[in-house]
Simulated scan of single mutants.
Amino acid sequence: MKDVAAHAGVGLKTVSRVVNGEPGVTPDTERRVQESITALGFRRNDSARVLRKGRTASIGLVLEDLADPFYGPLSRAVEEVARAHGALLVNGSSAEDPERERELVLALCARRVDGLVVIPAGDDHRYLEPEVRAGLATVFVDRPAGRIEADVVLSDSYGGAREGVAHLIAHGHRRIGFIGDHPRIHTATERLRGYRAAMAEAGLPVAPAWESLGSTAPERVAAAAAGMLGGAEPVTALFAGNNRVTVTVVRVLAAARPVALVGFDDFELADLLRPGVTVVAQDAAALGRVAADRLFTRLGGARPEPERTELPTRLVPRGSGELPPAAP
């Protein structure tokens, strides 16, 4: 830094301000410093910065599955907020395994990340209590933390599912099936609750055979859909609990009679199918952005009580959810 200061004809503090993105430097001076940095090949020594400030300028993001399209916009939004704060994002996938989540989170803590954004796989996060007491900022996304108090940013899974099923009812459907994710997952149970609420509000019974929660593996979902479409009283409409379920159901319906469909989560090419797939869309990017903003608010020194933030969903009619019940 001394060489950069001498080359640019400024003081060390000015170089420090430019390198760390701090205010108080005129545009002309900043330009001279940046030109000197380029000419001399200067690189900031983050190890020294950690020793001086006790911060690594890095945050961790733990997702369910990096390959899931839903998490792409969420991850990108967290990364953009981190970048705006001069921080590096390190992410990993829990593969929906609570033990793997715990190992990954603690590995990130061991590398002294300043904060964590976590989409939880497990339902007991007391293992994080020592880290939180030591000052680690943590925000949970999509699902709340288990057995600890922490910030959480969610979509309105209950309200979205309730609206989606009510939409099917409004188009004449009375026998509606629900296919969702594992019952231990918060979003799955909230969407099932929304389905049941819409049916109850319309005075409609729900047969046990019309509900199926479990793995989102295609073979399991396809078997559940086939079972609901067959039998003495087949359903005339299906509500799919997430994008992976919806995609499998679309494939099943391609070889079956016309059945109305509403899916929770939008997905690529949903509007290009015939008919287009009606969905309850959640804003994955907003989830990531709000969570990251909350994290950096805490890293900035604010210590408010943990908050629960719930973002609204949006019904997107495209045709599949507007199909009337097929004639018997």
Rank of each mutant, 00 (worst) to 15 (best):
residue 70 F to C: 05
residue 57 A to L: 08
residue 81 V to S: 01
residue 47 S to P: 00
residue 58 S to Q: 11
residue 100 R to Q: 11
residue 53 K to E: 13
residue 37 I to M: 06
residue 47 S to A: 15
residue 33 V to H: 07
residue 92 G to N: 11
residue 68 D to A: 09
residue 84 A to N: 10
residue 49 R to L: 11
residue 37 I to V: 15
residue 58 S to M: 12
residue 91 N to W: 06
residue 70 F to W: 02
residue 45 N to I: 12
residue 35 E to L: 13
residue 44 R to K: 14
residue 79 E to C: 08
residue 56 T to L: 08
residue 63 L to T: 11
residue 54 G to A: 09
residue 68 D to R: 01
residue 59 I to G: 02
residue 41 G to F: 09
residue 97 D to W: 08
residue 95 A to M: 10
residue 76 R to G: 09
residue 99 E to R: 13
residue 62 V to F: 00
residue 92 G to T: 15
residue 73 P to F: 01
residue 87 A to S: 14
residue 49 R to S: 12
residue 42 F to S: 07
residue 64 E to L: 14
residue 86 G to D: 11
residue 41 G to I: 13
residue 93 S to G: 09
residue 55 R to M: 12
residue 81 V to N: 05
residue 70 F to N: 07
residue 93 S to I: 04
residue 97 D to Q: 10
residue 60 G to P: 04
residue 37 I to N: 09
residue 41 G to T: 08
residue 36 S to Q: 10
residue 40 L to S: 04
residue 65 D to Y: 03
residue 72 G to F: 10
residue 56 T to P: 00
residue 96 E to R: 09
residue 38 T to W: 07
residue 97 D to R: 05
residue 42 F to E: 10
residue 55 R to C: 07
residue 55 R to E: 07
residue 82 A to P: 05
residue 51 L to F: 11
residue 88 L to G: 06
residue 75 S to K: 03
residue 84 A to H: 08
residue 50 V to N: 05
residue 50 V to L: 13
residue 64 E to D: 13
residue 42 F to P: 04
residue 100 R to M: 07
residue 52 R to M: 09
residue 70 F to E: 01
residue 97 D to C: 05
residue 40 L to I: 05
residue 48 A to Y: 03
residue 65 D to I: 05
residue 37 I to S: 03
residue 35 E to V: 07
residue 53 K to V: 14
residue 37 I to F: 05
residue 82 A to F: 00
residue 63 L to W: 02
residue 50 V to Y: 06
residue 89 L to Y: 01
residue 62 V to K: 01
residue 76 R to T: 15
residue 91 N to Y: 10
residue 87 A to D: 03
residue 49 R to G: 12
residue 94 S to C: 02
residue 97 D to I: 06
residue 59 I to C: 06
residue 66 L to V: 15
residue 50 V to D: 06
residue 81 V to F: 06
residue 65 D to A: 13
residue 43 R to V: 13
residue 59 I to P: 01
residue 67 A to Y: 03
residue 83 R to G: 11
residue 54 G to L: 09
residue 64 E to G: 14
residue 84 A to E: 14
residue 94 S to Q: 01
residue 50 V to F: 13
residue 95 A to P: 04
residue 39 A to D: 11
residue 66 L to W: 01
residue 56 T to C: 06
residue 78 V to C: 09
residue 62 V to M: 04
residue 82 A to R: 01
residue 74 L to N: 03
residue 59 I to L: 08
residue 75 S to T: 15
residue 94 S to R: 00
residue 68 D to E: 10
residue 84 A to D: 14
residue 83 R to N: 12
residue 94 S to N: 10
residue 62 V to N: 00
residue 47 S to Q: 14
residue 74 L to Y: 03
residue 54 G to Y: 08
residue 73 P to Y: 01
residue 63 L to H: 00
residue 52 R to Q: 15
residue 55 R to A: 13
residue 63 L to R: 00
residue 89 L to Q: 04
residue 76 R to Y: 12
residue 54 G to F: 07
residue 81 V to A: 06
residue 64 E to W: 10
residue 49 R to W: 00
residue 46 D to I: 11
residue 41 G to N: 09
residue 41 G to C: 10
residue 42 F to Q: 04
residue 93 S to M: 00
residue 66 L to D: 07
residue 72 G to P: 03
residue 42 F to M: 08
residue 92 G to H: 05
residue 78 V to S: 05
